[in-house]
Amino acid sequence: MLEIKDLHACINGKEILKGINLTVNAGEIHALMGQNGAGKSTLSNVLVGNPAYEVTHGSVTFNGKDLLAMKPEERAHEGLFLSFQQPVEIPGVSMVNFMRAAVNAKRKYKGLEPMGAGDFLKMMREKRKIVELDSKLANRSVNEGFSGGEKKRNEIFQMAMLEPTLSILDETDSGLDVDALRIVAEGFNKLRTPETSALVITHYQRLLDYLKPDVVHVLMDGRIVKTGGPDLAVEIEKRGFDWIKAEAEAD
């Protein structure tokens, strides 16, 4: 589904990603861990086409297509979704209008008619329930004045609305309280199908307990230095990253 080969990327002329290789197959969940500043968010931003980042080398294919050649919105239409580490507030744009524009843009891309107002609102209601998003939030401007946790919940609500095939969750767990984390993680699991995959960036085991990743990667200074099974995340929780760093340096 997603194949990243020797990916290098810069921001403001500074190289952050220094040769990423990663393959995610349909139905798999990959966890991506690593210390602050390792380049995890950079990788997610590069994948969704944030123009602030420049790809200097390498390739990414998504369902056989050249992902890097697509506009950000095309990547979304093709099924890529990013739950942002820091969701943006958009004052004056209501959640309803925002979601309607997004849903209908994708439908247009797929050659479908725009959704009728009634059907759309019904869909909003149903998807809201999955992550237990308060109807008051759904009636406000996008993320405006939302608490940190509410913003994260809203990201997964949007994911539910857009039904992506590959979701990147960039620290969706940070900011969520214990109950909210459970609700959001269970919501995420409800949305899973054998065809959907995810790249889950997190610092903690707790989210992974719910999502049960198939593969765990460790990113360090712009490279994936270690890949393992679910146990790797447990070990990192206990021991931190120093031993991985030592291993990597010894290589």
Binding site: V88, I90, G92, Y109
Partner: peptide, 22 residues
């Protein structure tokens, strides 16, 4: 904000329109 909307599938032109309208 423009990029956030694009990530959700909204074209840049439409996203600009939404921001101006807001």
């Amino acid at each position: 904000a423009l990029f956030y909307m694009q990530q959700r599938g909204i074209s840049r032109e439409e996203a600009q329109m939404l921001l101006k309208f807001a």
